[in-house]
Design a protein around this nucleic acid. Sequence first.
DNA 1: CGTTTTGTTGAAGTTCCTCAAAGCTTGTGG
DNA 2: CCACAAGCTTTGAGGAACTTCAACAAAACG
Lengths: 246, 246
Amino acid sequence: MSPTTDRFVPPLIRRLRSTATLSETVVEAIRTLPVSLRSYEPGQEILRDGERPACCLAVVDGWVSRLKFLPGGGRQIIAFHIAGDLPDLQSLHLGVLDHGIAALTPCTVARIPHEALRELSARLPELAAVLWRESMIDAALFRGWLTANGRRSAYGRTAHLLCELSLRQRAVGLSTGRTCPMPLRQTDFADAMGLTSVHIARTLGALRKAGLITLQARTLTIHDWDGLCEAAEFDPAYLHLKSVDR
Amino acid sequence: MSPTTDRFVPPLIRRLRSTATLSETVVEAIRTLPVSLRSYEPGQEILRDGERPACCLAVVDGWVSRLKFLPGGGRQIIAFHIAGDLPDLQSLHLGVLDHGIAALTPCTVARIPHEALRELSARLPELAAVLWRESMIDAALFRGWLTANGRRSAYGRTAHLLCELSLRQRAVGLSTGRTCPMPLRQTDFADAMGLTSVHIARTLGALRKAGLITLQARTLTIHDWDGLCEAAEFDPAYLHLKSVDR
DNA sequence: CGTTTTGTTGAAGTTCCTCAAAGCTTGTGG
DNA sequence: CCACAAGCTTTGAGGAACTTCAACAAAACG
């Protein structure tokens, strides 16, 4: 196996196994995919809104965000992605990208040619099903965010996002215990939840004062998971994880 | 052809053709799908949150909404669906439903067994691709709503939703000219956009006073499409329609 | 034609925003 | 290793957007 494959495959498999059962055949097939790696600096654009990419992306390490810009200058983050995620699987069937993809932290991203994915899926329906499922989970997260942002207060919304990001990292082994990486700036929180960074500061302060979390040095510690879930009205069903142990 | 098929197929084909090119083979294949029709009254539940449906739905006539309820009593509508739409295509690969599906108006819905869809897609990769694409467009709408609700004022948001619903109906031949059906109550607008129905009343009043629309007798008339688009910062790209003529 | 649902309007309250300044981190070059 | 700059976070004060409560008007429905 090439060193590229060795870096690219483990996080992806880990992610796919967190939501579905993979046969060894599929794992072996994924190992044969021809990918190229590239690294990005925070803020750097990976794919531009309106592009017609010929590859799908897989996050190898670091964090990636997907975002839309409004003509009037507004910025909305629509998703955060961690190692193992496939942030633009949809481009396989949609052609034109309807949002941008950018590095949130220093990160490494693999590019998998559409061609290769299509061929392999055609030969291996099980792989096609896994990918389709993965793209459906992507959509489920949008639904989760839509209701979080639509019907929760700033306090509940923030708690909800922290629950989600903590659980997703835990599900792929990027965190254990009560602590996890949390590299988002307050402007990132703000643009994800449709608030201002000033209000995020106050809201995080309130969550801290309530004894639910601490957030410093890009690390989140959840002191009271049940309390945070309650504040968030958090129901992890929309993440479609195989096991939701805590 | 059975009378059931005769009612079910035309709107679906019309919808699929609005976003993709269909071969005659695929159209013929769709005609062979075994479906059953059922009618619902406004507000009636079609599928319940948490269910594991064994069928996909296709809207035959009327409007359907997808929604989530929060423990605290909040209600968020995450999508509106019109004739030809496939409102829970995702259940084909997701198993558990993470939201409810309900009738918005009197409507007729077709049920297509997962089994039948899977078999047919396996035999006809072109059909699988069309369905996958359709489910990706569903996700694209969530992204559109997420940014609309996150980064637009009530005024812009409302304008945006009206633009979308008008254009989607136009794309499948459910409206022509400046007018289209608009059966939503103000509470439906409110629950879709994360606002209160009282504020919707004021916002619709403002759009009316600005000379952009009139909305009465469940009919929307857009007097100034360009003006409405401008107020909405509307870019139809996220609908992924084949032609966006106006 | 009465009853129920839906829409409109007013007044007061809350949440969140804007503007602004100060404190804190993080990173960089000397 | 320190000094400084740049970016990020915190806090305050005032304002705008949206909500709540409430009453009434207008459709829709049987």
